[in-house]
Design a binder for these strands. Structure first.
Lengths: 180, 180
DNA sequence: CTCATTTTTGATCACCACGTTCAGAAGTTA
DNA sequence: TAACTTCTGAACGTGGTGATCAAAAATGAG
């Protein structure tokens, strides 16, 4: 039976989430395949990690495409919709935080993936819809920071995806909107 | 010359921040000591990582002790003071995010370190000084999320520690205070 | 300064995960 | 059934790690 790369990455994500230093053999066993098969797809351990991270970034990027490009829609509604769509990716985002900072190629892709959001935020601020005394970079970074915080809470089982999305958007908007 | 554990951890943090998979030999060389000496202090690589993370958590915990236990002081002033004191730890917090989630002992210490803040936030909320419609766990998690976001921005050289602290407290307070 | 104690060091060993190869088994497709 | 693709298990070298130890260096007490 021909195993899909997608499935390998799913299993790897699951195993590595618990034990970041898990053996390739362990991952292979969990997927019910040979270590050689993993090698055929991903020649080095780093390649597997990279593919895993890239896939996660790609999924985040796909959701970010749904960020508005104009200001026609209500900000809170549009942002909530995007945030809800991001929540299910929680279990995939654990590595991301460590590797994005040290892996150059990955960091580039990450920036690309998040660009639609950054542009939207910059646009909102330029039109006076967001506070002017914070750099737009921080407005973006703070949203992403809340995103990771919520993903953590979801992973720990404290809150559900829908509630998490509401908390993020409410917290961020209150902090980012112009406060007189 | 007897090298201090403190110095080993400093060098290790510096080297591992750039290359998380750096060799113990590389770390030893950077510190100008023998690999055996590192082994004498930290029998396994995991022990070194753990000690490094524990040290960082301890430093964060030390700062958190300065969180008010009563509500006598102004919230924004008190919070800003603590946040400013946390900013210089930026370079030490890179690993934390990955290991806290998977390392049980570390997670326990992390929770202990952050408890003063969690208690303060819970107290403020109980007295109606923070919005009631968000669980106090989220109020705490969101502050920490912004903390990590700011640490990232500092590490990338985008903003300075003092400005970062201001952005965190302003953003968080606006999002956490009761919005009528 | 001298000597006993502590610490560091370099050398050396086994072990294990990884990178790599390959012939054969298993599966897919024509 | 035959031709192909993919998966598999075994094998080997390499390199980082865990571990030990005697010698060298640093420290501290008298």
């Amino acid at each position: 039976m021909v195993i899909k790369n997608e499935r390998i990455l799913d299993i790897a994500a699951e195993v590595l989430a618990r034990r970041p230093d898990a053996t390739l053999q362990t991952i292979a066993d969990s997927a019910g395949i040979s270590r050689t098969t993993i090698f055929n797809r991903y020649p080095t351990r780093g390649d597997l990690i990279e593919a895993l991270a890239m896939d996660t970034v790609a999924r985040i990027g796909a959701v970010m495409q749904r960020v508005p490009t104009s200001m026609d829609d209500d900000v809170d509604v549009a942002l909530l919709a995007v945030t809800v769509a991001l929540m299910p990716l929680a279990s995939r985002t654990i590595f991301l935080r460590l590797h994005v900072d040290t892996h150059d190629v990955l960091e580039t892709h990450w920036i690309d993936a998040v660009t639609p959001l950054a542009v939207y935020i910059a646009t909102l601020q330029a039109h006076g819809r967001l506070r002017q005394d914070h750099p737009y970079r921080w407005l973006t970074a703070s949203y992403i920071g809340l995103l990771f915080a919520a993903w953590d809470e979801i992973e720990s089982g404290e809150i559900g995806p829908v509630q998490a999305a509401r908390l993020i958007t409410q917290t961020w908007l209150a902090g980012a909107e112009y406060a007189g």
